[in-house]
Design a protein around this nucleic acid. Sequence first.
DNA 1: GCGCTTCTGGTAAGCGCTTACCCCGACTCC
DNA 2: GGAGTCGGGGTAAGCGCTTACCAGAAGCGC
Lengths: 412, 412
Amino acid sequence: MTTGTGSETGRTTGFPARPAAGRMTRAVTGPPAGAPVAGALGGTPGQPPTIYDVARAAGVSIASVSRVLNGRRNPREETRDRVLQAVAELGFVPDGAARALSVRLKEVVGVVVRRPQPSRSDGVFADEDENLQFPDMINRGMEVVAQHYGYDLLIRSVDLHESDGRRIFALARKSDGLILHDQVISIEQLTRLGRQVPVVTLAFVPTPTTVNVRSDNEAGMRELIRHLAVDHGYGSIGYLSGHLDSPDNLARSATIRAEAEAAGVQFLNGPPWQGDYSAAGGARVMERLLASGAELPRAIVCANDQTAIGVLYALGQRRIAIPGQVAVAGFDDIPVARHLNPRLTSVRQPIQDLGATAFETLHALISPAAGEQDLRGRDIVLPTRLNRRESCGCGPGHPDSLVLAGTEGLLP
Amino acid sequence: MTTGTGSETGRTTGFPARPAAGRMTRAVTGPPAGAPVAGALGGTPGQPPTIYDVARAAGVSIASVSRVLNGRRNPREETRDRVLQAVAELGFVPDGAARALSVRLKEVVGVVVRRPQPSRSDGVFADEDENLQFPDMINRGMEVVAQHYGYDLLIRSVDLHESDGRRIFALARKSDGLILHDQVISIEQLTRLGRQVPVVTLAFVPTPTTVNVRSDNEAGMRELIRHLAVDHGYGSIGYLSGHLDSPDNLARSATIRAEAEAAGVQFLNGPPWQGDYSAAGGARVMERLLASGAELPRAIVCANDQTAIGVLYALGQRRIAIPGQVAVAGFDDIPVARHLNPRLTSVRQPIQDLGATAFETLHALISPAAGEQDLRGRDIVLPTRLNRRESCGCGPGHPDSLVLAGTEGLLP
DNA sequence: GCGCTTCTGGTAAGCGCTTACCCCGACTCC
DNA sequence: GGAGTCGGGGTAAGCGCTTACCAGAAGCGC
């Protein structure tokens, strides 16, 4: 840690050491003994004021303070004014933990994301943190609606397939419910977890006790394959897959196979085409494929955009023209897709909506509106849409296409 | 919200309505009356088990349970075993709020990020959420070390220069301390806040009660300008600025002016060059500039990479060659920078380190190690480094440069 | 004028933990 | 053998809130 040009004012006011918990400060009932009036008022640092401080300042009981603040009953106007004034003067905000304990609601939901694998790759993709974009955008979607409900997100990342789920169960006790990103837990653990606390998963599967939210892989993939096979007339398509056991990957893979078959197009898949959702993984697969001398398909569909980035890179290295010799498409349509060269054709997932929907759903589980039906066991599916750009062979003249990022400046 | 193909098992087990708080369940002291043994054991949904359940199951007092779990004293082996077994059977995890209230530590830190402005732009940059990348990467850096200390991050976004800071003060009571991203609070509010709770800011300024963490704008900018002016010999440089009142922007702007002067290079700046850290803003400024017929400088330095993306776009639209006619450079070195065309020269900020350092610092404020000095008032500065790529005029042959993303596939 | 309802404010219990304090039995040491 | 120590377990206070319950005051009808 580098310490810089700090204005070394050498002030001595430390945060006062807090007394250990336990009986010592406050009489059994009634306001705290002689605690100094804390708060934002004076310049004095100190503990934030408590409801007792407010009550004392306003000359009322703590019950009245609480009632005014929470709009219970109908306090006399004078009482209300005195309380509000004291609150303003002291800058009182109720403590979250105490409130949570009392009302049995924390107004916090836990979000578990998968920690990016420790990068096994050097070189261009070394700190491949763009990976973060996808889950982070989902989280952003959650955050917006969470805020609307007065909730906050408690974020924790875990390793891929966290073995015992201990960290996840622990997070559950800091929150009112959990949203789990893909591949952070096993089905068994999930079912167990769902019995103890409201849980919504993303891109996984519903269990009897939990709800799943995902996007429509089938429809999106179908549209993409038909575009490649029919509109462009490509005769062979390879699928560079993601993690084998990811439900998204399974669905995408199954759909592409079925559609390719239906269109009478050759389909390449299997172990040599096994990626891992990362750009480095995509590049690695392509390099092996190229090194093996195998003939490439006319089009390559990638499990996600991240993978496609790696593929574009590897093909570029070999001076293979995209889409001239090989067309490439991705899935997700993350923002970078538009800045790639060539611009990446991709199936758009409603990324922020996924997050927003996940939160809405969880909230419905946590405090169900009157008469609302129990959602547990449901699989909520959001629509997808194909975004055609250049990498699939759609020219810059294509109606869906836009000129971008200085490309023409370079072209002769 | 679209409800899809759910497996409509029509289960009836709702989360049992929790009793309202208040006296009703438990005898004054001792275990709760006849609460069913809850937990992960049976298939029964229900409240998670409490320490009373564990104590009863193990045939000991709650104090013993707590002591075993927290490693206090030195429980007899038999006691320990019985407690641990009961804990395992019931799947007990202590409630966060209760624990927080008791030990006066929540093990949560609040993180406040600036919500992206409601997009005022249509077209290419419409959902310009890549903006998120920068703060999100910082957060990721925090999260990693937070986890190390057993903390979690409570994320909240606020509008630019949140007027009264109410949301921020509220967040403070849900956490043990705050990390504030840039431009979310005024100095006055910050000072006030710092008196009530430990606060670390990012890319802002230290106050007597708070610590600031930032990266070395001056050194990075100096290196960049010297590279442009001396190595490349460009005779004029424009600075497309960020938010006027952002300390980062001020520092970058001041340095570039000083360095340009020192190198005897013409420096362009001022209102027509006023951006807002966004790609859309960068594009807009360039378009106005071009429309006005003003002569462009030989090199344009952007307040951040985001802005540079917009500039590349606008120049590309006009078929202005980069770096041939105008060289462009950014600041931050976000991952996309490598995928742009041409690849963007940029000053690298240690993004994840910023987050990690911010957390470490905050942790030191929250629970200072014995003998540790008070950091408040400090300005912690992390080093930066210039990454030379093509957009400044360094050719693909440059040692720092790497061929990328299928570019050559397109070039004749 | 008196019992009744209505309205407000105060009192204290309880949310689920941690831990100070007390107590008791087993040892130790003269 | 009795006082002193020590180790371990139980009891209950207290963390800062919300709210059930109670009590007194005020309003009301007959």
